Simulated scan of single mutants.
Amino acid sequence: MKYMFLKGLDIMANDLSNRFNQLFDDSDRFFGNFGRSFFSGLSDSFKDMKSDIKENDDSYQVVVDLPGVEKKDIALDFKDNVLTISAKRDSFSDESDADGNLITSERSYGSFSRQYAFANVEESKISASYQNGVLTVTLPKKAEAISNTHHITID
Rank of each mutant, 00 (worst) to 15 (best):
S105Y: 03
S127Y: 00
Q131P: 00
G100N: 08
S124Y: 01
S111T: 08
S96A: 14
E144A: 13
A145M: 03
G100E: 08
S127N: 11
K142R: 15
G100P: 02
E123P: 00
V134P: 03
A143V: 12
E95M: 09
S96P: 03
S93N: 14
S129Y: 03
S124F: 00
G133T: 05
Q131V: 12
Q115D: 14
L139S: 04
V134F: 02
Q131S: 12
E106Y: 13
E123N: 10
E123I: 01
V134D: 05
E144V: 06
T138Y: 02
K141D: 10
T104V: 14
R114C: 00
L139D: 04
F118G: 13
A128W: 02
E144I: 04
S113M: 09
D94H: 14
N132L: 11
G133F: 04
N132T: 10
G110K: 07
G133V: 02
K142Y: 02
S124M: 02
S113L: 08
V137D: 06
S111F: 03
L135F: 06
K141Q: 10
A145F: 05
V121I: 14
S111M: 04
I126P: 05
A145G: 05
E144T: 08
E95V: 07
S113K: 13
I126T: 09
S105A: 09
D97E: 06
V121N: 06
Y109P: 00
D99H: 08
G100Y: 12
A117M: 08
S127P: 02
N101P: 00
D97G: 10
N132M: 12
S108Y: 11
N120P: 00
